[in-house]
């Protein structure tokens, strides 16, 4: 059960600089648990304290956004490719609202 994972620049400090890593899991949640075992701290960057995927992180299985595949429950198969992209967002929006949105 090997899943190819594309790692964005901002998370490469966890993977020793690697752009692509391999993980295992039947669901996205399982995969992130496995990746966190390999790269401690990795999972925390993607998951909120409440256990949901961060709003400003995009995760794709093959070429679909996991938000349309059940988010953390998205099923994975051997050979799937998972891509993580931090959202590109911002704007002249009020700080309190933005802080609430970003979960920070």
């Amino acid at each position: 059960m090997a899943i190819d994972v594309r790692v964005p620049t901002i998370l490469r400090s966890y993977t020793g600089g690697a752009k692509a890593v391999t993980g295992a899991g039947d669901t996205l949640a399982d995969l992130l648990t496995d990746l966190d075992r390999q790269f401690p701290g990795f999972r925390e960057r993607l998951i909120t304290k409440e256990g949901a995927l961060h709003r400003f992180v995009n995760v794709y299985v093959n070429d679909e956004d996991v938000r349309f595949l059940g988010a953390l429950d998205a099923k994975l198969d051997d050979g799937d490719s998972v891509t993580i992209l931090p959202a590109v967002a911002g704007g002249a929006f009020a700080f309190a609202a933005a802080a609430a949105l970003s979960g920070r």
Binding site: F56, V88, A89, G90, G91, A92, F93, A94, A99
Partner: peptide, 20 residues
Amino acid sequence: HTATEAYPSRTDISLAQEPG
């Protein structure tokens, strides 16, 4: 920014995730 200056807002700063 369409009504304010061309300086990063706190939102821009807190959401910036492309260090390069």
